[in-house]
């Protein structure tokens, strides 16, 4: 069977109160689909980190989720500043977050490493001044 379930979310920049909406929505669907709890957990954690990154580093963007029999694919696309050095950004503890953002409890530099850790594949396409697209896959 070739059915694909597609979900779409707009992520508002600078609006922390709404961050997490995508994660809630996706979790709800995954549970209705009877996806195993471990996969739900991975998706929830990775997606929330990605969503927050879009809010604090890239002024929002869009998230598309595709679910089929074999995998859950998450595509997070923003028109932010881009990431100058991906390798560096991927290091645990690396962060360019402002003091304001840090005072909210973000900026530990653990987001991207966690996204990698909790997914089966992660790919970052980025161009300075144009934007960043992060694609993550959790296999079922």
């Amino acid at each position: 069977m070739s059915d694909v379930i597609a979900l779409h979310f707009d992520v508002d920049g600078e609006d922390f109160t709404r961050a997490g909406e995508a994660s809630y929505g996706v979790k709800r669907t995954l549970k209705q689909l009877g996806i195993n709890p471990e996969a739900v957990r991975k998706v929830a954690i990775a997606l929330f980190e990605g969503e927050i990154n879009m809010v604090i580093h890239a002024d929002g963007g869009v998230i598309d989720i595709e679910i089929d029999n074999n995998q859950i694919k998450m595509i997070l696309k923003d028109k932010g500043p881009g990431i100058p050095d991906i390798e560096k950004a991927m290091q645990e503890g690396f962060s360019t977050a402002s003091d304001d953002v840090r005072s909210l409890g973000f900026g530990a530099g653990m987001g991207l490493p966690n996204m990698k850790k909790y997914t089966d594949s992660m790919e970052i396409q980025t161009e300075l001044g144009v934007g960043t697209t992060v694609t993550m896959v959790v296999n079922l």
């Binding site: 059915d3 694909v4 379930i5 209705q32 689909l33 009877g34 996806i35 029999n69 079922l140």
Partner: peptide, 15 residues
């Protein structure tokens, strides 16, 4: 809360 027993059947139903 799940809408079908198997994932693949659930995906079809979800569509």
């Amino acid at each position: 809360l799940k809408i079908a027993d198997g994932v693949s059947e659930a995906i079809t139903k979800m569509a």
